[in-house]
């Protein structure tokens, strides 16, 4: 450190994200931020508070609720909104009222397409948003590794990986025609560890599901599947209490827990520093087929 002129990796990532959030707020007419309640959303919310302090967050937060979210997530979401006073918009997919749209009957691919992807596209169209801020990180998945920070979507909300706009320096091209939109990813350059280290450094509240506790699960294909939320059990399966935690959070039927005794942020960071598996191995949706994420993304999924 030379008289405070060096800034740490986390400080650099924070500054980059704040810069991006401010660009979006300044250059778009109807921006919105996706709020999925997970750790990345918690970090983004915190970054927004910093970026626009002492003012209010100048855009609404949008949650696409599939009705398959963990109850703890919904409670956390509502508590945060009440405490911080940001504008929260909750969108329920039209298909969500139809009980036949569920991952057990449809399979995860079609369920996601219906509840998440088309739900999202409907929500965005209804809101007429020209910029949609998301918490995706390039590190998460191979097709995400190629996405721009400002990622252009045509009037149908689709991504064309072959025709991405080149992106130079930190000069972002925010210009879109009516109907077109931009997906913006302020956490593009963050890793899972960065997210947790930042949460620890900044004391950011997260959903308690991230911390280890005894939970009723069944073991299926090497994954710990939460029981007791309506997930149908296969013949021979009996829920057992296991000390576990969630590494990522999504819909409960499609999110596996990991055996873990990490009950504090420091524990989680230590665990991640030693893990041999990447983050999305606990998300069942990504294993469906080779290149599944890229296909979903072309269609509009985040």
């Amino acid at each position: 450190m030379r008289s405070g002129l060096t800034i740490s990796v986390l400080d650099q990532l924070e500054a980059e994200a704040i810069h991006i959030l401010r660009e979006v707020a300044s250059e778009f007419e109807r921006p919105v931020m996706m709020y999925s309640i997970g750790k990345d959303s918690s970090v983004m919310l915190h970054l927004c508070q910093k970026a626009f302090w002492p003012g209010r967050i100048p855009f609404p937060l949008l949650h696409v609720d599939t009705r398959y979210k963990f109850p703890e997530m919904v409670a956390f979401r509502d508590a945060r909104a009440a405490e911080l006073g940001f504008e929260l918009r909750v969108y329920h997919s039209r298909d969500g009222d139809d009980d036949s749209v569920n991952p057990w009957d449809l399979g995860t691919v079609r369920c996601c397409a219906s509840l998440k992807t088309s739900g999202l596209l409907d929500a965005l169209q209804e809101g007429g948003y020209d910029a949609v801020i998301g918490g995706a990180r390039r590190e998460e998945e191979r097709s995400r590794a190629k996405e721009r920070i400002f990622s252009f979507r045509d009037a149908n909300g689709q991504w064309e990986p072959r025709r991405q706009r080149p992106e130079f320096w930190n000069l972002y091209n925010s210009r879109v025609n009516s109907g077109e939109s931009m997906r913006v990813f302020p956490l593009s350059n963050w890793t899972e560890l960065d997210v947790w280290r930042y949460i620890e450094r900044e004391s950011i509240p997260v959903v308690p599901l991230y911390f280890a506790a005894k939970r009723m699960v069944v073991e299926r294909n090497g994954q710990l599947i939460p029981a007791g939320e309506g997930t149908p059990l296969l013949p021979g399966e009996t829920p057992v209490p296991r000390l576990c935690r969630y590494r990522t959070l999504g819909c409960y039927p499609c999110t596996g827990a990991i055996a873990s005794s990490a009950t504090t942020l420091a524990d989680i960071i230590t665990e991640l520093e030693q893990t041999r598996l990447s983050e999305r191995t606990t998300r069942l949706i990504d294993h469906d087929q080779d290149g599944s994420m890229e296909r979903k993304k072309r269609e509009g999924y985040f």
Partner: peptide, 8 residues
Amino acid sequence: DVAYRYFA
């Protein structure tokens, strides 16, 4: 296209 990788 440009792909980004992160490691430490």
